[in-house]
Design a protein around this nucleic acid. Structure first.
Length: 422
DNA sequence: CGTCCACAGGAATGACGGGCGG
DNA sequence: CCGCCCGTCATTCCTGTGGACG
């Protein structure tokens, strides 16, 4: 149809004729589990020891793993379990492994539904009581006469949002089973998370504990070196880029995942640019691109009211008012609502929205006490004005509101000036 | 030293749409 | 198609609180 599209033809040809960068793209994706996990031998062996009893038909100890993001927790667990499953086939042990990411599944209901689905029972996406799902899961588990290992990844997010009731049920389930056994592997990013748990749950969940320390810069370097051998063709990655990449990731909580995504994005940049080598500049560009993509992604998924709150902060910043408190933001927000005929939310709700924006890194909110003048949050916008304008250039309402001049800000500026001259 | 500001943030409650069993 | 239960968003009501002011 469009066979004569010269421009597109050029794009493809340039790509095909350009230098070869990637040998294996999948190997640098975040969900890739490599064959070797450098600097995690100790943890691999420990977890192996802890889970080994299932090969002889005993229930493995419940295991609790914690460490910050990008320290290899998930990769190590999946790696060990894969080998365990393989071994269990050899010795004919009825092992069944189920992996659930609690942040993605989100609620008690969905986690149970996912576990049930793995066992082959059909559970509606919604519609049943959570207890009903639990008892269906339990019945099915007992019928199948298996040793089930449940991996609950990012378990801390679940407990913070929905409490530990499901953990309590799952740690007690063995008492109710006749023919099957269940053990739990909990993975948490948050080290202080234990404090949220009921002591009974904590004691049975952490029969064993394994800690993953952050990687040091040289360790990250090793990991990257290992992975680039699979990912890139020889000589694609420069020494300088490798070093800066490890250093950047190490300064950011020793996060190997971060280092790998820097490399991936840098590789893609180089490929598009048609050059043959990843240099330091590319890593820096990649860092900017990742941050930029993250922010625009967040801004585009905000709800209309959150956008209005953000817009309010934008206008405050534009009016050269450095510090604003919850009340000020709410005032501007309500005026903006009036301008486009929205029914404003309550201050309570807006306060929550501000907290959410703070957690996402869009705002920087700090609790302060102004003594006589109350206790509130001092809020600053963490983004540049141009980022916001760029992200909302397609939103016709926001686009105009970003140019709006709220009355309540005018009077504030006057007061400020009056105070200055005095 | 007590007061009292301007909120924070928890708890209870309700409205609403989705989706299933019966 | 009804009734039930879910998760989500929002409101209402509430108690709690650090510290400047008097």
């Amino acid at each position: 149809m469009v066979l004569d599209n010269k421009l597109l033809e050029d794009v493809f040809n340039n790509f095909l004729e350009g230098p070869k960068i990637f040998k294996n793209r999948d190997a640098i994706r975040p969900d890739y589990i490599p064959q070797y996990l450098p600097h995690r031998e100790e943890q691999i062996i420990r977890i192996g020891h802890i889970l080994a009893p299932v090969l002889r038909g005993f229930r493995g100890s419940n295991l609790f793993i914690y460490g910050k993001t990008g320290t290899g927790k998930t990769a190590v667990v999946k790696h060990v379990l894969e080998h365990l499953l393989h071994k269990s086939r050899e010795v004919n042990s009825p092992i069944f492994i189920s992996y659930v990411n609690c942040r993605i599944s989100g609620t008690n209901y969905r986690i149970l539904a996912d576990l049930g689905a793995d066992l082959g029972i059909k559970i509606p996406f919604t519609g049943l009581a959570t207890n009903e799902v639990y008892s269906r899961f339990k019945t099915s588990l007992d019928l199948q006469k298996i040793l089930m290992i449940v991996v609950l990844d990012e378990i801390d997010t679940l407990v913070k949002d929905h409490g530990d009731s499901i953990l309590y049920e799952l740690t007690r389930i063995n008492e109710l089973l006749k023919h099957s056994r269940l053990s739990i592997v909990g993975i948490s990013n948050d080290i202080m998370f234990k404090e949220f748990l009921d002591p009974r749950v904590l004691s049975s969940l952490s029969e064993e504990e394994v800690i993953f320390r952050p990687y040091m810069a040289p360790e990250i370097r090793d990991i990257l070196l290992d992975r680039t051998k699979i990912t890139f063709y020889d000589d694609v990655l420069s020494e300088g880029a490798l070093n800066i990449c490890s250093a950047l990731a190490a300064s950011e909580h020793g996060d190997a995942r971060r280092a790998l995504s820097l490399l991936r994005v840098a590789g893609e940049l180089v490929e598009r640019e048609g050059s043959a080598k990843i240099l330091e500049v590319h890593i820096r560009q990649a860092q900017k691109k990742i941050e930029h993509d993250r922010v625009t992604m967040i801004l585009r998924t905000l709800t209309p009211h959150s956008r209005l709150v953000l817009c309010g902060m934008f206008l405050i910043k534009k009016a050269k008012i450095s510090t604003s408190i919850t009340g000020d933001v709410y005032e501007v927000y309500t005026e903006l609502c009036g301008e486009i005929g929205f029914e404003p939310l309550t201050q309570r709700r807006v306060s929550s929205l501000i907290s959410e924006l703070d957690i996402m890194g869009v705002f920087n909110a700090r609790l302060v006490s102004l003594g006589r003048y109350g206790r509130t949050k001092k809020i600053r916008l963490s983004l540049t004005n141009s980022t916001i304008i760029a992200a909302y250039s397609e939103d016709p309402w926001l686009k105009n509101l970003l140019k709006f001049k709220p009355k309540c800000l005018l009077s504030k500026m006057m007061n400020k000036n009056a105070a200055k001259t005095r």
